[in-house]
Design a protein around this nucleic acid. Structure first.
Lengths: 214, 214
DNA sequence: ACTACATATCACCAATCGGTGACATACAGC
DNA sequence: GCTGTATGTCACCGATTGGTGATATGTAGT
């Protein structure tokens, strides 16, 4: 066989420019895209490499595999809570613990609604408690709790009220409602599509918060 | 080759007794087991067939594939809400809407905590909104909403309060807390392991409900 | 006893997965 | 110009997946 050997045909696809940092970034970007658009079910070396337009081998070389890639995403997300709630801080100091919690809850709701990537990660944490994903969860949790503590200042919840428990309930509700809205558009018979629908949710949250922390 | 043909070796494994109904039941039972124990990630024809101790072909024959199997599970779960909240009804008529909602919320919490299968299905609905799973969600939603309406009788929520929205928030919180507890044992910095942890959650729910419906 | 059918199992398929070793090629240092 | 190394691509591996056609076998009806 004097026809072109396998190696001769090697030049079918243009190789990427040889820029290690750019390739690393491309992979990370593709990973976040895949996760945000298709969820963790599609998340794998093959899919990410295809999306990034490079060979999957590079994922192993530059991130040591999927786990390292997830960690890299987690690293970028470490400050998500802080960044997304920054506008809340700009409103000036709240006058009461109730007002603080209302701002935080509604701000968290909006921030989560606008970020499909974090939505997917939340869903991932719920559905597939693998160790690497757990780290994402705990780091985000810590960020949230720490942020609340920081904003709180010297404001104190009413005497005898278990604020961490109440806040966990509120955060849980917000997370599930947003994720359910993204995937099914409704929850427990409540439509979650139009802005009017969300106004009902916000009103309910306001009532609950005001009542609990009154 | 006069050695045993492939077909001669066919009798390695004992075939199941030829009982169509029993086999159908075994498959459905195995499917629920797999789902409850390992979650939807492991849920597939191969796994279920292995668990049921039969050939996967039978899943296609008797249920028309995975979708039909999921539908069968959904059919059995149609009355889950009603069944699991039956003890609540036995307590006698509530004296107020607030008391009704408190009973329902706490009853729903306990029922969900005790049923890993439904927990997995909830997680499934959240993470992988495929059409067949959606049907499970909506049927359960309808069951819940209908049950509330039925129990409510002539009790009415306070004037001007958006009860469906408030209830959706509460149900969402309960669902996510239970699922998070099952998978990670904590949520938003709140431990969810011991009965004492859960008592904090129940107390928080009681406060929120009482305050909102006062 | 013989046939027809329902039941169950097996054997294989193409596709996809995560993972790895071999090869190609651009570029930097000598 | 030659060589070594970093970067990128390809080709393959074994395992697993959902899916199907062919085959064996128990059982009921004649």
């Amino acid at each position: 066989m004097s026809e072109p050997t396998a190696r001769t045909a090697r030049t079918k696809t243009k190789p990427r420019p040889r820029d290690r940092q750019a390739t690393r970034r491309a992979i990370l970007f593709a990973a976040k895209e895949v996760l945000a658009e298709s969820g963790f079910q599609e998340f794998g070396v093959n899919t990410v490499a295809r999306r990034a337009g490079c060979d999957k081998q590079l994922i192993y070389r530059y991130y040591g595999g999927l786990e390292g890639l997830v960690d890299a995403i987690g690293g970028e997300l470490g400050f998500w809570v802080r960044d997304s709630l920054r506008p809340i801080a700009a409103l000036g100091p709240p006058s009461s613990y109730a007002e603080l919690m209302e701002r935080l809850a509604l701000g968290f709701l909006e921030a989560l609604r606008e970020d499909p990537l974090v939505q997917r990660i939340v869903a991932w944490e719920i559905a597939a408690p693998s160790p690497e994903v757990q780290r994402l969860a705990t780091s985000r949790s810590r960020g949230l709790v720490g942020w609340i503590a920081e904003m709180r200042g010297d404001l104190a919840p009413p005497e005898g009220l278990d604020a961490p428990a109440v806040n966990a309930v509120l955060v849980a509700a917000i997370q599930l409602l947003v994720v359910a809205a993204a995937s099914t558009g409704q929850f427990a018979g409540l439509r979650l599509k139009t802005e009017k629908d969300w106004e009902r949710v916000r009103a309910a949250l306001r009532i609950l918060i005001a009542a609990a922390y009154a």
